[in-house]
Design a protein around this nucleic acid. Structure first.
Lengths: 111, 111
DNA sequence: GCCAATAGGTCGACAGTCTACATATTGGAC
DNA sequence: GTCCAATATGTAGACTGTCGACCTATTGGC
């Protein structure tokens, strides 16, 4: 129940973060999680048990596609690529996120 | 799965919003939900099925207390009051929320 | 030979929210 | 007088998403 302490992520934001990360170009799962962790200065940690199911959901909805390839270190890796509808979805999720956080800040009387 | 569209709330933020609202003074559940909806300009809607379980969790953790009273319109109503440890918790949740949203904005390259 | 890092993934538990329901009172519109 | 919206509290069950723990495999360094 101690919501934020317990989970490093705000539930519901992972897909947005993944989609945004994929605008950098096709990446494999491990690289996605590293990127998010690095840019957030380790505030956000993406566990495999969250990431891979999320990537599957994104594929099922047609927002990303994937294919096997090879990582820079020579290992086999599945590369995920954002689609046109994924970009559209990212835009919607981002503005919804902004709308909601603004609303929260209004309730907290900080906006 | 369309996370933010579907739910008006960012999961994990309801308790923070409720605790903050109770810093205005003791309020009954219905008034709490109205206050949050109003200040957020209807972006956030607090459903009963979310609110009352949340209020129970808050009580179980000692962050709020409650007793029966009467509303301004003369109806019976349960008034909730934030405790000292609830205030402390509110501070922690608020700074955790700020930390996480800042991190998200860094990943989205907007901070 | 071992461990950390890189890479992908599954499983089951769990928390929190939602929809829908149930109950009751008050006040206004018709 | 009848109905409905608003006020008020709550419960039950479904559902989603995240998490911790686990499993496999390869590479490189100690």
């Amino acid at each position: 129940m101690p919501k934020l302490p317990r989970s490093e992520l705000l539930p519901g934001t992972l897909e947005m973060l993944v989609l945004h990360t994929l605008t950098l170009g096709p990446l494999h799962g491990y690289a996605i999680s590293q990127h998010i962790e690095k840019l957030s200065e380790s505030v956000l940690k993406v566990e495999q048990g969250s990431l891979y199911p999320a990537l599957e959901r994104l594929q099922n909805k047609g927002w990303v596609t994937s294919k096997w390839g090879e990582s820079p270190t020579g290992r086999r890796a599945r590369y995920y690529k954002i689609t046109a509808s994924g970009l559209k979805q990212l835009g919607e999720e981002t503005s919804a996120f902004d709308r909601v956080t603004l609303a929260i800040n209004r309730v907290l009387k900080r906006a």
